[in-house]
Design a binder for these strands. Structure first.
Lengths: 229, 229
DNA sequence: CCAAAAGTGTTTCACGTACACCCATGC
DNA sequence: GCATGGGTGTACGTGAAACACTTTTGG
């Protein structure tokens, strides 16, 4: 079976930059290619857009295939269509970035078919196609996003301590932050709820745990509130 | 002649939201469609991506066809691929917004083929396809952009007076601004050069004219400067 | 008692905001 | 001389940034 058109059409794919946060490290999900071109090299997860799914649906389908999860933060950040970006022919890709809670046990990286790994942003392998550029753009977008919307919490467990958020922001923004000022600003927003629970089994003073009050945030947004860190 | 593929492919287009500024009004270039679907209705300029041009090249080609100009500010802001967004079949579009100087005589709106018009954002006709949503997203993007990068000047003549910039910002942001505070903030940036020239033939006090110092801006950006209004 | 991370306040300075009147020009 | 928009300064309050020591816990 084949499909014919009066004019030639580029192939259309979606690619996903999936960010996770763990051990103070910002990580990205990479796939090792098992066929040419770029066989054996690392690439972003992605695939062709089907005729019966929207772009976002295609991205979520790919994400589910690679991580096992479907409900995660997902945002489109750009499309890439240089004529020679894929040696096999004309392929235009729509790129998304996703944020997942690596602490969530339902997230995995391995599939039977191809090997996938969480790689720290600090030490990435070379990537196939124009994926290094796409990844750089995703990170740039995440940097802006994380300061203007409370998406950082998408990367943390539901219960977290303040230093975890700070380390997350430091990893994303690529610079250190002042502990007292950071906590002051964060708590002043009034969006973190202290839980009746503390860190346990640590050999130093136990940290207070918090959760992000999403409902309150959404209510405030209705009234014109704007998150900013 | 026809082109065959093993799997079906969506058609791929680019659409452009072309903003202009004139008489205190933010305007958009619209095309009146002369064939179905949506015959007679207004739509954004756009067209199919050819196999030998990148996405941005496709957008610039369309822009040149519609406005006569090629060198203008242009930025991609999103791709739209809902399955039923075009009644003729599956069409995915990559959307750009462009900023043009309406004061520049080389900009026109009419082509022989189809009628094109500059319409004020304050009073838009209904648009074909999902173009109202695309336009809304373009405006949202412009609102953010104009406050974080000096793109407002792309919409003004090379020589302008301060109230023109203020009116531009008011039109884009959709709210009034305080004259003294606006001028203070703007001039403090040190990016406007007062010219040896004033407004003429006005029946009130003549305004000082300025130009934007792009070279100085680029030098400052190298050093980590960040424009913000 | 030692190591390790948690937690906590004050001062200083810059910037955002609110606000009202005189100036120059053409008719 | 009047109508029209151009141009200017101050006072106040809020928020950003810099900065160091005490607390708790397990080993």
């Amino acid at each position: 079976m084949s499909y014919s058109y009066d004019y030639p059409r580029p192939a259309l794919t979606v690619d996903c930059v999936v960010f996770g946060f763990d051990d103070g490290d910002l990580k990205v999900l990479l796939i090792q290619r098992n066929e040419p071109p770029f066989e054996g090299e690392w690439a972003l997860p992605g695939g062709f857009v089907r005729m019966d799914e929207s772009l976002e649906e295609a991205a979520r389908r790919e994400l589910e295939e690679e991580t096992g999860a479907r409900e995660m933060f997902l945002e489109q950040f750009g499309s890439f269509g240089d004529v020679h970006r894929d040696p096999r022919g004309r392929v235009v890709t729509v790129a998304y970035y996703a944020l997942v809670k690596l602490s969530d046990q339902s997230i995995r990286a391995e599939t039977d078919a191809r090997s996938a790994e969480w790689r720290p942003m600090r030490a990435l392998p070379p990537l196939a196609f124009d994926h290094e550029m796409i990844l750089a753009r995703a990170l740039a977008r995440l940097k802006e996003k994380v300061r203007r919307e409370p998406v950082g919490f998408e990367l943390l467990p539901k219960k977290f301590k303040l230093t975890q958020i700070q380390h997350l922001y430091e990893a994303v923004l690529g610079r250190t932050l002042d502990k007292r000022n950071f906590r002051k600003k964060l708590l002043r927003l009034g969006l973190l709820v202290p839980l009746d629970e503390q860190e346990t089994d640590v050999r130093h003073r136990a940290a207070q745990l918090f959760r992000f009050d999403r409902k309150k945030y959404l209510r405030l947004v209705e009234k014109g509130f704007h998150f900013e860190l």
